[in-house]
């Protein structure tokens, strides 16, 4: 990643929040979208790499896969209270993602838990290739 390249930015909507994630590769944009989403929930930079999880998911196409991938991480937050700060994407095709994610159990005293993200939605969902790299837009229900 270029030092100058921003990983993600927050999109502001009245009832909801979204992100635009950037990356030089598709893998990077998927990882940055995940990091951006975790940053809405908590201070992602405070999350240590204590546990790891293997994640694999599939979907009809790559944009749907982006939503599926993010919702996998939200599931792990609700079911196991896990937050992640690093996403190592080992395989990414049109319909499938395989990744190892690193993080730890959420701790309100250290991670500044902010907003509960209910789900990544398909609304105004975009995954596109631009001259300067890839760009993804996802709106969350919060």
């Amino acid at each position: 990643m270029h030092a100058t390249m921003q990983r993600f930015e927050i999109l502001d909507h009245t009832a909801d929040t979204g992100i635009i994630a950037y990356g030089e590769s598709l893998e990077e944009v998927f990882a940055n979208a995940a990091y951006g989403m975790i940053s809405i929930i908590a201070d992602a930079e405070t999350v240590n790499e204590v546990v790891e999880r293997e994640i694999s998911a599939e979907a009809f196409d790559q944009t749907e896969l982006l939503v599926t991938w993010l919702n996998e991480l939200l599931y792990l937050f609700d079911a196991e209270f896990l937050l992640f700060s690093r996403f190592d994407i080992q395989g990414l095709t049109e319909e499938r993602i395989r990744a190892t994610t690193y993080g730890e159990k959420a701790d309100s005293s250290r991670h500044n838990l902010k907003t509960h993200v209910k789900a990544a939605t398909y609304h105004s969902l975009k995954l596109e290739e631009k001259e300067e790299g890839f760009r993804a837009q996802v709106i969350f229900d919060v």
Partner: peptide, 30 residues
């Protein structure tokens, strides 16, 4: 709570496929 969110998320995926299978045309995937 998270139960409802997961049910909705699961079935949005099911319905995404159904839209294609039944040839339903919609202006928004959601």
């Amino acid at each position: 709570r998270g139960f409802g969110h997961q049910v909705c998320d699961d079935y949005l995926k099911t319905m995404g496929k159904a839209v294609r299978d039944y040839g339903i045309e919609l202006p928004d995937r959601q």
